[in-house]
């Protein structure tokens, strides 16, 4: 009998062995602020002096390079792919490989491509690796859950009732996967509310600062994200 094996998953844990903590920013609906928060957290951890990586796993909606204003970067090829630095963050994204064209792929293809990049990306030593997840519990999300069972899940939701309802159901799936979930982050908050791990308030300056890192770090969105980074860093349960 002939056995056919995909060799790639065997090295993924080795590739991440120098990474102390992996935080997957999820949200179960589109547009709740996952990408913005992933970028802001990465900038905040870097500002705090941590070695930080950011991996944009939302292949079809890749936007972290636009938020950070990280055009014209490309990984260096050595014994794998070394992610280039964007504002001090080791940054990996599928947009390096798409020549500015739209990435329209089925879920199975995205899952396969995610596996490929986890196989060949050399992250080295990192204190934090932030994963910007695609919306929903999709093929891509399952792939990440399989490959990286040690990831901490940070779900984002907005005050909209529908978003909360969808999130609750999706979290059940993740909890079965035994992921650590410190709590829910409410984004675009308009008033103080209890029950959240952290609140990020609505900030009309945030969207306007996209693409300009020096402006991003002056917004109140960033200040809220910075507080969240401090809380995550102090959280002994993670």
């Amino acid at each position: 009998m002939i056995k056919v094996i995909d060799p790639r998953p065997s090295v993924v844990s080795q590739r991440l062995s120098g990474v102390k903590k992996i935080i997957a920013v999820t949200g179960f609906k589109g547009g709740v602020g996952k990408s913005g928060l992933s970028c802001a957290l990465s900038l905040a951890f870097t500002e705090k002096g941590f070695k930080t990586g950011l991996f944009d796993l939302d292949f079809s909606g890749a936007s972290d390079h636009l938020i950070l204003g990280a055009g014209n970067l490309f990984p260096r090829e050595e014994k794998g792919l070394l992610p280039p630095y964007a504002h001090g963050i080791k940054f990996m994204t599928a947009s390096y490989f798409s020549s500015n064209k739209a990435i329209a792929l089925r879920g199975a293809s995205i899952a396969c491509a995610i596996k490929e990049l986890f196989t060949v990306t050399i992250w080295g030593e990192l204190d934090y690796l932030i994963l910007d997840m695609p919306p929903g519990v999709s093929d891509a999300a399952f792939e990440v859950m399989n490959l990286i069972p040690s990831a901490v899940l940070l779900p984002v939701q907005t005050p909209c009732g529908l978003s909360a309802e969808v999130l609750k159901r999706s979290l059940e799936v993740y909890e079965k996967g035994k992921f650590k979930i410190p709590g829910i982050v409410q984004n675009m908050a308009v008033s103080k509310e209890k029950g959240f791990y952290s609140q990020i308030f609505y900030d009309k300056k945030w969207p306007k600062a996209a693409g300009k890192a020096d402006k991003l770090i002056k917004t109140s969105f960033y200040a809220d994200a910075f507080r969240l980074a401090c809380k995550l860093d102090k959280d002994g349960s993670l």
Partner: peptide, 15 residues
Amino acid sequence: EKENVHFLPEMVKVF
């Protein structure tokens, strides 16, 4: 494009 596909074969669907 060839190089991009070399790194990430799924990108063939983009090109």
